[in-house]
Design a protein around this nucleic acid. Structure first.
Length: 932
DNA sequence: CCTGTCACG
DNA sequence: GACGTACGTGACAGGG
């Protein structure tokens, strides 16, 4: 039966990666019904293989066939040029686990499946095609990759599997303007932005083809470059000769690989019905299983239909029963769990630690869950009970696995790209594990799934999610740790008590994941979750763990200075008041001012206390000295307590740096929030406060670099609302507030006064916040009628703004949510409220798409940043809503600025094409005050 | 634990 | 016609 490959043979080569990506992008993110395993790409891939098999009857039928895959990310091309494919976007996380399944699918169809570590599929395809051609056979390459067009001709053609379009010599001529043998030359000149092949700047395919046709070959062209008439082109070709030559090597396919198999191994084989159907039914592809079994004339295997019930009902099906969870105490027991995880391809993980601060807390135990109701807890560092039962012992409790041994066993699983690790707030667990030498990936996060779907509806903590979506109240941690002064840490909890609590968390997480995963697509937030939530986790974890250096002495000195000034002010205030009182007590201050000193106009709030806010005291300052002194005192008190004192407590003893924690799902609009400490509200507006930033420093030899988006929210407003005058002003780089003032008041730009500009600025901000006459009047301290007049005139000059506001509110009323340009949904359940609530909800709805789009943009920049700056001695340290702060070797500061700026300014691409440019301003210096 | 105040974007 | 309002956060201190 077997025939030697030669004349009359027809080899089909399928570009496996191309098939997979086509399948992935062409189909919605399907999941396997029984367990939610992402399966869309595998499904598409199988359909394409099936179609391939069905189509191949008749004269064009292949005698030989193979699916060729890429393997390994580092190839000889990376050695030639380290930036090769450097700006490739990372593989989507829900595609990664599907890759091994497509290999299995190929084998199930009984089609040869070939790959070689460190080689791209293209080179294997090229080698096979050349071998087949040399043997006198025909070749069809099933791919649309233009790199493969070099191979066309002499019995080799291509077939674009999606468009079903055959590409022959003429097709190549059409695409490249040259024959297949010169395609490499054209590519070398034109470069390829997708693969990051540099080529010759300013020369595209058209020009390249023109040049090659004129000079015959790339080599002749480069040798005779001096003859070229166009000066720019001539210069490029002479100066970039080396870069062009490297480009040619990058695009040139390798036809002479030594392969560990021969063409004869690729002979077409009929699939084994049993193997193929077993695989298809395991994947739960009902239609395809039926179709193929009909075709093969065998009975289709039964695929159990999972019961379609509400999540609540499913939860009842397998009750959450903490007493049934297993306690894993040795390597043999753990190995059983690892086997289960590898079988499944995913696992819910939860870590227990001695505290909530990821940089200080120690690992105490781990829980795992692979199927609802089956979870385990692995205690690792619980302490033995003390002899007197009052003070715990420092010795480890009996019956625990050795921590190192456990981590060594779990590390390969936790780092296995084919095993998905599911967590609730995975950044926490990832940081704890990272400090123990494990880099968890890939991950899914139920908290972030909920955030993507439900922002604005409720918070996304596990207790809330469990109650809402599983109708189950988890064991409160208080039951184990107690509260207040008597609170203990988790390592002091008895192991048998810990098992139920800890394993339950993993069980709940898995159940939430199963409930949420299919919902992401239904609610149209898959892209938001996949592109703007999940990829941010490792980026933030990295930033937080790296921290920023804070100089304790600087803070301490400032603190002392503040103390002295405050003491002096306090004396003065008591003197003015006529008696001693607590200046820090708004209640006492109100009584002093309005009762004892008899100042008029005190207003009591709903609690019955006088208001003493800064705005009120500022008004009173014109009448009396005391309020002005109190304002000064308050400013110092704030700076001292919140910054110079508290910040010192946050300096980590081991690193000497401050490690903030960002909440990804904290703010409804998509913004991050910073806690412990909050590094997004370090003072800057007053000179005295600004000096606190001098304590944030770079290591010796380094500098801090700050890049912040200029007017990003106004730019977004100009784009969304379509305000031509504003767009124009931004495109021309004008001072936007002055331009607004000029448009509104008819004052020419060169006659603009600071006062008029200030008013326009207040209006611009007001618009972003959902302007009201009252709010603007208060901000500008002008009569309300005047403020309303400004607003009316503003809407008159920029009618698009009013239209945007009305449309947004109408959309919110209809859908109970608004959306950012990138599809992030922010729910607005209060939008229909009556009474004073109504105004709040409207303004929030107007503001959310603007603030949220800005948040999306900087998220995208942050996600791309690590790869972009990977080659530089630089680290991203902080995010402050529209600013990114870096630490970089002083010598590389300028390069970092240009790279990071490009990432930030291009962060909306390619999903959203903004009508206005994004601009990032940069600064650098030894400390944050100088850098900003 | 809640409220007022104030730091940031 | 009156009401009460700028949007989004977090930390600290005072006071029940």
């Amino acid at each position: 039966m077997s025939q030697q490959f030669g004349k009359g043979c027809h080899l089909h080569l399928i570009d496996g990666s191309a098939y997979i990506f086509r399948a992935y992008h062409a189909l919605p993110p399907l999941t396997r019904k029984s367990d939610g395993l992402p399966i869309g790409a595998v499904s598409g891939f199988c359909n394409m293989l099936q179609k391939f098999v069905e189509d191949n009857a008749g004269p064009n039928a292949p005698t030989h066939v193979a699916v060729i895959f890429d393997k390994g990310s580092h190839t000889f091309r990376n050695d030639l040029y380290d930036l090769y494919k450097a700006n490739r976007e990372a593989m989507p996380e829900d595609l990664r686990p599907q890759i091994p399944l497509t290999r299995r699918a190929t084998e199930a169809f009984n089609i040869a499946c070939k790959e070689l570590e460190g080689f791209e599929a293209d080179d294997i395809i090229a080698t096979l095609a050349c071998q087949a051609r040399a043997a006198g056979g025909r070749v069809t390459i099933l791919s649309s990759d233009k790199d493969l067009m070099q191979l066309v001709g002499d019995g080799v053609d291509m077939l674009d599997p999606m468009k079903n379009k055959r590409i022959d010599r003429e097709g190549v001529m059409e695409k490249f303007g040259v024959g297949p043998e010169r395609v490499v030359d054209v590519q070398a000149l034109a470069g390829d932005s997708v693969d990051n092949v540099p080529g010759a700047p300013g020369i595209g395919i058209k020009t390249a083809a023109l040049l090659i046709n004129e000079y015959g070959s790339l080599e002749d062209l480069l040798d005779r470059a001096a003859e070229i008439k166009q000066p720019k082109r001539r210069q490029t070709l002479i100066e970039k000769r080396e870069q062009i030559e490297i480009s040619k090597k990058l695009v040139q396919l390798d036809c002479d690989m030594v392969l560990p198999f021969t063409l004869d191994d690729l002979e077409v084989r009929d699939p084994h019905a049993e193997t193929l159907l077993a695989f298809l039914s395991e994947m739960e592809f009902r239609t395809l299983t039926k179709r193929i079994s009909d075709k093969l004339g065998v009975e289709a295997p039964a695929i159990p239909e999972p019961v379609q019930e509400a999540p609540e009902a499913q939860a009842e099906q397998v009750p959450i029963a903490p007493e049934t969870y297993e306690c894993v105490r040795d390597a043999a027991a753990l190995q059983l769990w690892i086997d289960r995880i590898n079988d499944r391809g995913y696992v819910a993980v939860d870590t227990e630690t001695t505290g909530l601060n990821e940089m200080r807390a120690d690992l105490v135990g781990l829980s795992l869950c692979v199927t609802p109701g089956q979870a385990c807890y692995i205690p690792l560092a619980h302490r033995a009970a003390g002899t007197d039962d009052l003070f715990g012992s420092d010795d480890l409790a009996e019956g625990q696995m050795d921590l190192e041994e456990c981590l060594a066993l779990l590390k390969p699983v936790f780092e296995d790209p084919a095993v998905l690790k599911i967590g609730q707030n995975m950044k926490y667990d990832a940081k704890i594990l990272a400090r123990n030498g494990i880099n968890v990936a890939p991950i899914d996060d139920t908290m972030l799934m909920s955030y993507a779907m439900n922002a604005g509806l409720h918070n996304h903590g596990m207790d809330a999610l469990s109650e809402r979506y599983l109708s189950h109240s988890p064991i409160p941690i208080k039951e184990l740790l107690g509260t207040g002064k008597a609170q203990i840490t988790f390592d002091r909890v008895a192991i048998d008590k810990a098992v139920g609590y800890a394993a339950e968390d993993a069980d709940i997480t898995l159940r939430l994941w199963q409930a949420f995963k299919p919902q992401l697509h239904r609610k149209s937030v898959t892209r938001v979750y996949e592109r703007m939530e999940r990829p941010l986790v490792p980026v933030l974890a990295e930033m937080e763990m790296h921290g920023i250096k804070v100089d304790r002495d600087t803070l301490s000195r400032m603190s002392n200075a503040f103390s002295q000034k405050m003491a002096a002010l306090e004396d003065e205030i008591h003197e003015l008041a006529g008696r001693k009182f607590n200046v820090g007590s708004p209640k006492q201050l109100g009584e002093i001012l309005f009762d004892e000193m008899g100042i008029e106009g005190g207003k009591k709030g709903k609690t019955g206390a006088y208001g003493t806010g800064a705005d009120i005291l500022e008004d009173l300052a014109t009448l009396h000295d005391l309020p002005a002194r109190v304002l000064d005192w308050r400013q110092l008190s704030k700076l001292k307590s919140t910054y110079t004192d508290a910040l010192q407590e946050h300096i980590h003893p081991d690193t000497g740096r401050v490690h903030t924690c960002y909440s990804i799902a904290g703010a409804n609009t998509g913004r991050l929030a910073s806690t412990d400490p909050n590094l997004q509200n370090i003072p800057i507006r007053t000179e005295e406060g600004r000096r606190i930033r001098e304590a944030f420093v770079a290591e010796p030899g380094n500098v801090l670099v700050s890049l912040d988006y200029s007017q990003i929210e106004l730019r977004i407003l100009a784009h969304i609302a379509g305000i031509d005058a504003l767009k124009e002003a931004f495109r021309e780089g004008q001072d936007i507030h002055a331009a607004t003032a000029s448009e509104m008041f008819g004052v020419p730009l060169d006659e603009m006064t600071p006062e008029v500009r200030r008013q326009a600025k207040a209006i611009n901000f007001g618009v972003i916040y959902g302007i009201s006459g009252f709010g603007l009047a208060r901000n500008l301290r002008i009569p309300r009628a005047d403020a309303q007049g400004f607003i009316d005139r503003y809407f008159e000059r920029f009618p698009g703004i009013k239209e945007y506001m009305d449309q947004t509110v109408a959309f919110a009323k209809e859908h109970k949510r608004v959306e950012t340009l990138f599809g992030r949904q922010i729910h607005t359940p209060e939008i229909g409220a009556k009474g004073p609530h109504a105004g709040f909800a409207k303004r929030a709805a107007i503001n959310a798409p603007i603030q949220g789009t800005a948040a999306d943009i900087i998220r995208r920049a942050m996600i791309r940043m690590p790869e972009a700056i990977a080659g530089l001695p630089a680290r991203m340290l902080l995010q402050v809503h529209d600013e990114l702060l870096f630490e970089v070797d002083a010598a590389a500061a300028e390069e970092l600025i240009s790279v990071a700026r490009a990432v930030m300014e291009g962060a909306a691409d390619p999903v959203v094409k903004l009508d206005v440019p994004l601009v990032a301003d940069a600064g650098q210096g030894a400390n944050w005050a100088e850098a900003h």
